[in-house]
């Protein structure tokens, strides 16, 4: 793509040479990428590859070793981003000793969101029937949805979701992904992590991570064609084997990125 100047202003997310050392591991190792506003991007990779660490660096809760992260034109962690970025942690972070509605009302007040927002997100995550239940007595998947609903309260411009669909049944997963697509269509940028490769096909763009590095930055179709695979799981295996053997990497197929 040549006409880069007049397109949209700044990217929603710009990460440059980010490195994070946690304990003795380089959890994120020289990672750079940009996300355009209004895109739905999947961050996929095996357990321990650094997805959570990368996401924490984006939302500004992670002490980083080097590199820069810019969201919506502001440095990560800037106070001006606090009501514009929504983050769902991998482990649901809501109060188990409050009801679903009490949790949402509290976080809505903190975010300055209205009480209609509470009803809206309850419907979004299909928890209207459980609004009066204690969160501590919900199932794991229900609790995860309360945590997700909390991040949707403030209608943020950027949503960082750490494995939001883990442990959910296929129907619910489908309805959440269609919600993510609706949000992206309305201009929200979403970065969604998963270690279930099947979820790759639901994203517009994929960042594949391994050992703290971005192995490939591609589209679902591009990933399949460049690895000559039928499904995403074997595509990822092929990618890793290629990485191990020749360090050749995979061309950023399908996408018009440089």
């Amino acid at each position: 793509m040549t006409g880069r100047a007049p397109v949209s202003a700044a990217p929603a997310v710009r990460v440059e040479h980010l490195a994070v050392v946690r304990g003795r591991t380089r959890a994120v190792d020289d990672v750079s990428f940009e996300l355009d506003a209004g895109t739905l991007v999947g961050l996929l990779g095996p357990s321990g590859c650094g997805k959570t660490t990368l996401m924490r660096s984006l939302v500004g809760t992670q002490v980083v070793s080097s590199g820069t992260v810019t969201l919506l034109g502001e440095p990560a962690g800037s106070p001006r981003l606090r009501d514009r970025v929504g983050y769902v942690t991998q482990v649901p972070s809501v109060y188990g000793d409050l009801t679903v509605r009490e949790n949402l009302s509290y976080f809505a007040t903190i975010l300055g969101a209205s009480s209609e927002a509470v009803e809206r997100v309850l419907a979004d995550v299909d928890l209207c029937d459980h609004a009066a239940s204690m969160v501590g007595r919900l199932s794991g998947g229900e609790r995860a949805r309360v945590s997700l609903a909390t991040a949707l309260l403030g209608s943020p411009s950027l949503l960082v979701l750490d494995e939001p669909t883990v442990g959910l049944d296929p129907l619910l997963r489908r309805s959440l992904w269609s919600l993510f697509h609706r949000l992206a269509a309305a201009g929200t940028t979403l970065l969604v992590s998963s270690h279930v490769m099947d979820e790759a096909e639901r994203c517009e763009r994929l960042l594949l991570m391994r050992h703290g590095r971005i192995l490939a930055d591609t589209s679902p179709a591009g990933l399949l064609s460049s690895t000559a695979s039928e499904d995403f799981e074997s595509a990822f295996v092929a990618l890793i084997e290629g990485d191990v053997l020749g360090k050749r990497g995979v061309p950023a197929a399908g996408e018009e990125r440089p």
């Binding site: 606090r82 009501d83 942690t89 109060y95 903190i110």
Partner: peptide, 13 residues
């Protein structure tokens, strides 16, 4: 430890 403090501190709190 439950992550709620971290969540609150990413919000305008």
């Amino acid at each position: 430890t439950g992550g709620t403090l971290e969540r609150l501190l990413t919000m305008p709190m």
